Computed example of a mutant assay.
Amino acid sequence: MNWNKLIAASFFAVLNVAAFSAHADEAASQATSHGTHLDIKKVVSIVDNGDGNCGIVDARLTYLDSSGTQKVLDYSKFADCGNQGG
């Protein structure tokens, strides 16, 4: 068995999987504007990058629509600040 070929094949397989998942993530996210109707049957997850900071943060909503297709919505929102109103 040639170890160099095995290592090279493994390396390219990992790169290919990483590139595919990054492309799938980009394609799954949709753009909306105020008043856009969203077909949400079940929320899978909601995450934001607030890290405890106050202000406007980026957030991601992952949900299933009425046909069971998983979709992703990126949006901005006010952070959930734990230190409001003193």
Rank of each mutant, 00 (worst) to 15 (best):
Y75Q: 00
H37S: 12
R60A: 15
Y75R: 00
G55H: 01
N16A: 15
G86D: 14
A22S: 10
L64Y: 12
H37C: 08
D80A: 14
V14F: 11
D65Y: 03
I46P: 02
H34C: 12
N2G: 08
L73H: 05
I46G: 06
V72H: 09
S67Q: 12
G52N: 03
S21D: 11
R60G: 07
A8S: 09
D39W: 06
E26T: 11
S67A: 14
V57C: 10
T69I: 11
L6E: 15
D65V: 05
Q30T: 13
L38P: 02
A18P: 00
V72A: 11
D65G: 03
V17G: 01
K41L: 10
C81E: 02
V17S: 05
D65Q: 01
D48C: 03
H37F: 11
T36K: 07
I46N: 09
G50D: 14
K41V: 04
K5N: 15
N83R: 11
S10W: 10
A59T: 00
N4A: 12
K77W: 00
A19F: 10
C81Y: 05
D51R: 15
L6R: 14
A8K: 13
A31K: 13
A18Y: 05
A59W: 02
M1I: 12
K42G: 04
L64V: 04
A28V: 08
T32R: 08
I7P: 05
V17P: 01
V47W: 09
S33E: 15
A31M: 10
L73T: 04
Q30E: 15
V72W: 02
N49D: 15
A59S: 10
A8P: 03
E26K: 13
K42E: 15
V14W: 08
N53L: 12
A59I: 00
V72K: 09
F12Q: 03
V47K: 14
V72D: 11
G35F: 10
Y75G: 00
D74K: 12
D25I: 06
I56S: 13
Q84F: 10
N4Q: 13
D39F: 03
L61T: 00
G68R: 02
K42F: 09
L64T: 08
G85R: 07
K77Y: 01
G35K: 02
F78P: 09
V44D: 10
L15W: 12
D25W: 07
G55M: 02
A19I: 05
V72R: 11
G85V: 06
L61M: 11
T62D: 10
S67P: 03
S76C: 06
I46V: 15
H23K: 12
Q84T: 15
A22W: 09
N49W: 04
G55T: 02
D39C: 05
N2Q: 07
D51I: 10
I56H: 07
H37L: 14
K5Q: 14
C81L: 06
A18I: 04
F20C: 08
F78W: 14
F20R: 11
G85M: 09
S76K: 15
V47G: 07
T32W: 08
I46R: 13
N2W: 04
K71E: 08
D80R: 10
K77A: 13
R60W: 10
F78A: 14
G82L: 05
L61C: 03
T62Y: 06
T36C: 02
I7M: 05
D25P: 00
T69G: 05
L38K: 00
